[in-house]
Design a protein around this nucleic acid. Structure first.
Length: 868
RNA sequence: GCCGGGAUGGCGGAAUUGGUAGACGCACGGGACUCAAAAUCCCGCGGUGGCAACACCAUGGGGGUUCGAUUCCCCCUCCCGGCACCA
């Protein structure tokens, strides 16, 4: 055995052994129970970043642990290979997105292999390959046949200079990222998936999922089921003449029907037909509506902008009183939301209150809450609280629930409205006016309308040689792609040139892992593996991706393709990886950034950072704080450099010991050194042990108290580490516990035969416990400790109950809840005996100071608290 | 703006069900070894007072419940994630 630890020598050798023995290829049937653990697939941006290292190492540790526990484990890998960055890279370098993407995949795959992750590469999936996306297209057509896909207009960001649709990310402060032009809202036809049809099930089945509670809560709030009343505000006579739309009035939805007698105006979205009609012959209103089109479509921008409005001059009637009500156009009313029109009750809605104040509209109190004084001057939060009706005619005195029922009944009787469930969730718009995505399999024929591409002609292949230029999709400029014949009538027709949202790709890729070569979308192998037993990925995906994948799975189930109701039985959301940022302002006023390894940080005697200087020339620079790793701030850490300098095991160990996987993680180069030192020390410890001769592990013999203590620690640790890995998913505390165990072993000076047998036991089990985190070094050290056996075939160590027996235990002694000392008592001591021991204790006597104890609290096995 | 989460030594963090606040590590300080350095090993390391024993204070800020609160409740501040075309 080499006396020194050389990761660069051992890691490739161990990886080769795994590959040659197909160690991580999972069978599709097994007497063992199955465990399917998946990490969210990476976007192939060029090279792995630390977020990936963290994500896949967590998954890998679980893989090894569950395997040792006797499960048939599958950990696959794929590539989320469609999307905007490939188009941006293409524009920057003139390389087609396909080549850029495939090159990145090839490189990143070698990095994954160098990390030693236990990936079953026979199941690799790339979403940009036609053999994958043909099933996006096939399933699109099935959904369309079932009416779960439909076409309607939607609002997008429009760059008026480049004449192109922009992604929200490409809108910066309301302007196009390339042109700087003020972005406009524009309505275009798009394809939608009816996720709202599944809203109730998506909501209800959250309860049974083994997900973090906050993620389930986010999804519940996102779906936002609310019960309310939909009703019509009838047009006033003049308005009815103007509108002539065949409708009786303006349809609105409210969850606060109990406030209906407080309506003092109504508001419609700028794109609402009523607004359009009112703008005819009203130049000021037309200008206002035009003005409302400025800016992007992002919810956060719309919610924070100044609320503005303008009267339309049109009127509707109150459904009960028949009083005329003015209709306004409001920039905060969203057309894509409900009916695009709202009733306004400024007395009991904060937004309406502010709007009424601003434009001098009347405000009426119609709800009272006991003992509260209503004032028109200032908004109070209780105005929105449930209470009893006042100034509401027939409804006066009713509490909220009775009032809503009575109002709904009256509306129903009048033929004006009904109770209805409303969701905040909107249907999923999947059309993207972009090139690098799955082509939507529709042909547009002048005679036959929209016609689905016949299954036999799938996939509609995306040409891979185009280069976008930022002025709209190259597909729409490529006759070779869009010119086709109508599948129905054979006449000339044009293909749909929009592609699908990349969330479509990521909604079912995990099922394709189970059967990557299937001649259908999925086959029976999916029934064996689904659902995922663990899904691991960033918290930033808590809503959209996870919700879409849940919907998609349910739609596949209803099509008879899978049996699973839910794709992800358990979920682990990991935090982001951050690093320090260093910068300075150049003479020209530009900010330049420095990588942390170019910087020398000085500390004072207490360890506080006092200054940061450049290693190269010693000049002083600024410490900006911490932020996500990014190219522009130069604070990324390249896993490749880590592997070359320290080895993959150190990188893996570092990210796992730093903190719990769900927390954001701050990178620290010094701590990386510490991780390497630990592995080097472990190597030396095993080497020294092996030098004196490998012995059989401890089985039975009389033990000194020191050895009994060591074995107690070992078997406690086995229990704790298994709990941390398998249940708590908290690897940092598992590693700390193993370090405590090895620290204790380190103190052992006994070199006798029995001591060496116990040391053998401790080392073997410590290596087994560490192996999910650092499998390379563990493989080599195991082979030294147990020649002729393979680590990869070992089960998880078993706990010896004899080692956990203790004669005496230490209790904490408190007086009035404050720690005053410790007490050693026999493990069998009764509550009364413990009380007596505690009262006799010197420290207790001192603080009790002769007073009579009021009571004594005994927590078995933990503490005794004397209250005076 | 709305929804969700977070804040503990110089730093990362621990305290699992309300029961010893600071495990384990990093950094830092002192010492040993060395011609010297690196590596390694030993000791110290929240704050204040004290020779010490020890005492008091301390988990973002303010209040509350409890024998006992980092943990539960209310209010506030700041930070992070998401908000439907980034992935």
């Amino acid at each position: 055995m080499e006396p020194q630890y050389h990761p660069r020598a051992i890691e490739p050798a161990v990886q080769k052994e795994w590959a040659d023995s197909r160690a991580f290829v999972a069978p599709d049937a097994s007497p063992k129970p199955k465990y399917f653990c998946v990490s969210m697939l990476p976007y192939p941006s060029g090279k792995l970043h630390m977020g990936h290292v963290r994500n896949y190492t967590i998954n890998d540790a679980l893989y090894h642990f569950m395997r040792m526990k006797g499960w048939n484990v599958l950990m696959p890998m794929g590539w989320d290979a469609f999307g905007l960055p490939a188009e941006n890279a293409a524009m920057a370098n003139g390389v087609p997105p396909a080549k850029w993407t495939w090159d990145n995949i090839a490189y990143m795959k070698t990095q994954c292999q160098a990390m030693g992750w236990a990936i079953d590469w026979t199941r690799e999936v790339a979403t940009c390959s036609p053999s994958y996306y043909r099933w996006n297209q096939w399933f699109f057509l099935r959904l369309w046949e079932k009416g779960l896909i439909y076409k309607k207009t939607g609002v997008v960001n429009w760059d008026p200079v480049d004449m192109t649709v922009l992604a929200n990310e490409q809108v910066i402060d309301g302007r196009g990222w390339r042109t700087g032009a003020v972005v406009e809202k524009r309505q275009i036809p798009m394809w939608y998936m009816r996720i709202t049809q599944y809203a109730d099930e998506l909501l209800d089945s959250l309860d049974g999922l083994g997900w973090p509670e906050q993620v389930k809560q986010m999804q519940r709030n996102w779906i936002g089921r609310s019960e309310g009343v939909e009703f019509t505000l009838p047009y006033a006579a003049q308005t009815a003449k103007r509108m002539a739309d065949g409708k009786a009035g303006l349809k609105v939805f409210t969850t606060r029907a109990d406030t209906i007698m407080g309506i003092t105006f109504a508001a419609v979205a700028p794109e609402h037909p009523l607004a359009t009609e009112a703008a005819k012959g009203n130049a000021a209103l037309a200008d206002f509506i035009e003005e409302c089109k400025k800016g992007g479509v992002q919810e956060a921008d719309i919610a924070t902008m100044e609320k503005r409005g303008m009267p339309t001059g049109l009127k509707v009637l109150h459904p009960f009183s028949g009083e005329p009500i003015e209709v306004w156009v409001g920039n905060y009313v969203l057309m894509g939301y409900g009916e695009g029109a709202v009733m306004a009750v400024p007395g009991h809605d904060e937004r309406d209150f502010a709007f009424a104040k601003k434009y001098g509209l009347p405000i009426t109190q119609v709800i009272e809450v006991d003992g509260q004084e209503y004032s028109l001057d200032e908004w109070e939060p209780w105005y929105e609280a449930p209470g009893r009706n006042v100034n509401s005619g027939a409804y006066d005195g009713l509490a909220q629930i009775e009032s809503i029922d009575a109002v709904a009944a009256a509306l129903e009787k009048a033929g004006l409205g009904t109770k209805r469930v409303q969701y905040r969730l909107r249907d999923w718009g999947i059309s993207r006016q972009r090139y690098w995505g799955t082509p939507i399999p529709i042909v547009k024929c002048a005679q036959c309308g929209d016609v689905g591409v016949p299954d036999a002609q799938l996939p509609v292949v995306l040409p891979e040689d185009l280069v976008p230029d930022g002025t709209g999709s190259p597909l729409a400029k490529s006759p070779a792609f869009y010119e086709t014949k109508c599948p129905t009538c054979g006449g000339p027709a044009r293909r749909e040139t929009d592609t699908m949202d990349t969330f479509v790709d990521s909604s079912w890729y995990f099922m394709r892992y189970t059967c990557p070569d299937a001649t259908a979308m999925v086959d029976e192998r999916a029934q064996y593996w689904m659902p995922l037993d663990m899904y691991i990925g960033g918290i930033e995906h808590a809503i959209l991706h996870l919700l879409y994948a849940r919907f998609w799975t349910k739609a596949m189930r209803d099509m008879g393709l899978v049996k699973a109701d839910e794709p992800f039985a358990n979920l682990l959301t990991q935090g982001m990886v951050l690093n320090h940022i260093y910068s300075r302002r150049t003479a020209k006023g530009r900010i330049e950034y420095f990588a942390p390894d170019e910087v020398q940080v000085a500390h004072d005697a207490e360890g506080k950072v006092t200054s940061a200087t450049l290693k190269s020339d010693g000049s002083e620079i600024e410490y900006e704080g911490i932020g996500t790793m990014s190219k522009s701030k130069r604070n990324g850490v390249d896993p490749q450099e880590m592997i070359e300098r320290y080895g993959a095991d150190t990188a893996r160990f570092y990210v796992m010991q730093a903190n719990p996987p769900t927390d954001t993680m701050l990178w620290s180069d010094q701590s990386v050194d510490g991780s390497f030192r630990f592995l080097r020390g472990l190597w030396v410890t095993v080497h020294e042990h092996v030098q004196t001769g490998v012995v059989p592990r401890y089985a039975s013999a009389e033990l000194s108290s020191e050895l009994r203590e060591l074995r107690f620690k070992l078997h406690k640790t086995i229990d704790k580490v298994a709990d941390d890995y398998g249940r708590r998913l908290q690897f940092n505390t598992a590693i700390a516990a193993i370090r405590e165990l090895l620290n204790l072993l380190d103190k052992l000076r006994d070199r006798g035969l029995v001591a060496r047998a116990v040391a053998q036991e401790v080392l073997e089990d410590a290596i087994l416990m560490l192996s999910p985190i650092v499998p390379h070094i563990a493989t080599v050290l195991w082979a030294e400790l147990r020649p002729g056996t393979r680590l990869i075939e070992q089960p998880w160590p078993t706990v010896d109950p004899r080692a956990l027996v203790q004669d005496s235990i230490q209790l904490v002694v408190q007086v009035n809840g404050k720690l005053r000392g410790h007490l050693n008592v026999p493990a069998s001591a009764s509550r009364e005996q413990i009380e007596a021991f505690a009262l006799a204790d010197d420290a207790v006597q001192k603080f009790v100071n002769g007073q009579k104890p009021k009571k004594v609290v005994v927590v078995p096995g933990r503490l005794v608290n004397v209250v005076v």
